[in-house]
Design a binder for these strands. Structure first.
Length: 199
DNA sequence: CAAGTGATTAGC
DNA sequence: CTAATCACTTGC
């Protein structure tokens, strides 16, 4: 039986390492009938605290939206953009250490037909190949804000790590305003995986 | 390639 | 209070 990742996974180590370790792991969200809907994490981005100009926590901004980033790791940071899309992030590290890992793409694994009924796209490849898409397919919305990843609404299960030679590092997407931080290679994805959000 | 969409935030 | 912005997606 696969194990749920424990609190220590989120609290310990450097966020960039945690981001890479999350690749290959299984994100699970049961639906209203307790059916498991899940997918392998194949693309992530790290947002590092108060110095990273691309991060919502830049400059130590604690607002209604960002406050969970300043709490203990192992919780979900959900935010809403462009008037229609939610984004799912994992909070890492101890309190007052506002680091998060944005999950940008999944490879569908369990109950793919439930994802299809939520997304209604022609190709399965479009089900979860982007941060907004995967939230729709998995049923993740505002109500998951601050939710524990050790609880029963949403969690991540252990699975074999992806070999370092199969992890590609690149610039993060959609943060051109972030000055020198726009060039940091803090996006990681699995090489050749068709569900990665952009080529 | 541009429009759509509304919560969030900075700045009065 | 108001206006500008935005860690995206889709369909032209």
């Amino acid at each position: 039986m696969p194990q749920r990742l424990p609190t220590e996974f989120y609290l310990e180590g450097e966020t960039l390492d945690t981001a890479r370790k999350l690749l290959g792991k299984l994100l699970v969200v049961p639906d209203e009938k307790a059916e498991r809907v899940s997918g392998r994490i194949v693309e992530v981005e790290a947002y590092l605290g108060v110095e990273d100009k691309a991060a919502h926590s830049y400059g130590g901004r604690i607002t209604e939206r960002t406050k969970v980033m300043f709490g203990r790791g192992g919780t979900a940071y959900i935010f809403f953009v462009y008037g229609m899309y939610h984004q799912f992030n994992v909070v890492t590290g101890p309190s007052d250490h506002p680091h998060v890992v944005l999950v940008r793409a999944l490879e569908p694994v369990e109950n793919i037909e439930i994802m299809r009924s939520r997304r209604r796209v022609a190709k399965d490849r479009d089900l979860t190949s982007g941060p907004g898409k995967l939230c729709i397919a998995m049923g993740i919305d505002r109500s998951f804000y601050g939710e524990s990843l050790i609880g029963n609404r949403i969690w991540i299960e252990d699975a074999p790590a992806i070999a370092p030679e199969n992890i590609v590092a690149s610039k993060r997407i959609g943060i051109d305003y972030a000055g020198e931080y726009a060039d940091r290679l803090w996006r990681y994805y699995e090489r050749d995986n068709p569900f990665v959000s952009r080529k």
